[in-house]
Design a protein around this nucleic acid. Structure first.
Lengths: 160, 160
DNA sequence: GTAATTGCAAATTCTTTGCACATAT
DNA sequence: ATATGTGCAAAGAATTTGCAATTAC
């Protein structure tokens, strides 16, 4: 991950930021919305909707699937959460933590996700786009490979 | 695209290569398989399953959806076709034409796809993976932006 | 009180699968 | 002949939507 401490700090006001966002947009602050925001903003992992629902259940704060989807939509619109698609057939959601754009490494064995940032890459993609007549808006890079644990042979199935 | 002429040449033996692949694997050569292969191997576009089906219909050579999916699976296994996921909610398929790994530019307005190759990027991703303890297997880069046509304002909806 | 949210179930979209019938070798 | 493919329709998985009951403000 990029900055664990920052992530923690972001969590604590993440909830506040979301309350503020909801008020500013005249959207009701409901228990479900806060619980869902807590789950996503409180981790630096990249959660699927299923992951979020599971987490909620284990906290005794379950919310209907539709509500999870709808709340995530609000969180993404608020800018507090970013949607990711690693080509797994479903989306993942990540707290943005005010952290700027970054890339992802995805372990093909255990599914672990590691983030990193690289300025050169930013510049390069802008340049590459221009070279081909495009004006760059954003880019997505995912490097697939084996994480250090999985290289050591032990094919455990881990958490993302 | 990377090499239009090469793409054309690849098309003509693409069909032959697929026949050979089928024979070598004791798989029946059917009219549907050849028609589907023709559609995908005969273009340098990145087709969705829907695109393939539509194209078949317009040729009066329609095949059932299941057959399209199953044939594409064979084409991918044969190495003649590569599966792509640009995060649109469905997959696209591209003739591999013997062309090595390359990146994609995707126009966010008209959906046009442009390919390009960049050696530095290859090396960079390997290095970046290593830096974070991963052994790189492959990577996916998609740059989203506006193609030259769409930058000129005319928001036509084009073909991929 | 009233407008917005919630949750359930039905609907959608992409893809896969089961099975009777058709076809390649 | 016989194994394999084909097409249809049903099944699945992720996500969206309609609507009556519920809750925030």
């Amino acid at each position: 991950m990029i900055d664990g401490l920052f992530a923690q700090a972001a969590h604590d006001d993440g909830r506040e930021a979301f309350r503020t966002y909801l008020r500013d947009h005249n959207l009701p602050v409901t228990a479900q919305r806060l619980a869902i925001a807590d789950v996503i903003l409180g981790t630096d992992r990249h959660l699927s909707v299923e992951d979020v629902a599971k987490q909620l259940r284990s906290q005794g704060a379950a919310a209907g699937t539709a509500t999870v989807y709808r709340t995530i939509e609000v969180l993404v619109r608020s800018g507090l959460v970013v949607e990711r698609d690693f080509g797994e057939g479903f989306k993942r959601y990540e707290a943005s933590r005010g952290v700027p754009h970054h890339e992802h490494l995805l372990c093909t064995n255990c599914g672990k996700v590691t983030e990193f940032r690289d300025e050169r890459l930013e510049r390069m993609t802008t340049l590459l786009a221009e070279t081909h007549g495009y004006s760059r808006q954003r880019h997505r890079l995912v490097i697939h490979g084996l994480c250090s644990d999985c290289q050591r042979g032990a094919a455990r199935s881990g958490v993302r």
